[in-house]
Design a binder for these strands. Structure first.
Lengths: 116, 116
DNA sequence: CGGTATCCCCCTCGATACTG
DNA sequence: CAGTATCGAGGGGGATACCG
């Protein structure tokens, strides 16, 4: 078996990559990297996400083994989401990228308006 | 001005993040991180990309300042794409993520079929 | 070789309404 | 609170044809 390569269209790693780098997937992992959170907390933290996409993306990432869903089974419902070990490992690589992009954005804006 | 945050829907960093983590954007940066490449080389290296999406994504990343287009102006045409300094900086954060995903994929497959 | 231009499908995604 | 169901618009993306 050849090693996984995202450049191969048939490689399973490509699918995983698309899940992880999906529009909301990145942000969910980012949000959960700080601490576990509940459904409503995630909706608030991730500005602009719809219920549909939040549910869909959470399920995908759970199936991929990056996220754990813990249902307390109480009424009213209390469900908590957290990163698995694999998810935390992943976040360790994803967060530096996010921080770089944010820092790069700030740098660009400052360059555009140098003197205040 | 507050610092950039990808969790804010209006923040410019969110747009940049979506360009960088777009389906083909990731792979283009990955391909160019090894060495500059020509159009046809990129098409071959990035399995499954259509001409339309290659052109579109290259333009977006060029506008974002991550990619440089160098046209030799000869006949037959010879156009080379390469990473800018910002692009290389970005790749420095993106590549570890890709390598981790590939390695994680391999590990999963081995777990699924332990003894050979 | 290195692209544009056009057509068109389909799938993602957001909005809304509803439920245990 | 934590979702599911449904619908409809938009654009991502493939195929094909053409150009300097």
């Amino acid at each position: 078996m050849p090693p996984a390569s995202v450049l191969s269209s048939q490689c399973p790693s490509r699918t995983l990559l698309e899940h992880v780098t999906s529009k909301w997937g990145v942000l969910i992992i980012h949000a959960l990297s700080q601490s576990p959170a509940r459904w409503s907390g995630l909706r608030r933290a991730i500005e602009g996400v719809s219920e549909k996409m939040l549910a869909q993306t959470l399920k995908t990432l759970e199936a991929d083994g990056f996220i754990e869903r813990h249902d307390h089974g109480t009424i009213p419902p209390h469900v908590e989401y957290s990163l698995t070990n694999a998810g935390q490992d992943l976040a360790g690589h994803l967060l530096p990228l996010l921080r770089w992009i944010e820092a790069h954005t700030d740098a660009q804006l400052i360059d555009a308006a140098p003197a205040t």
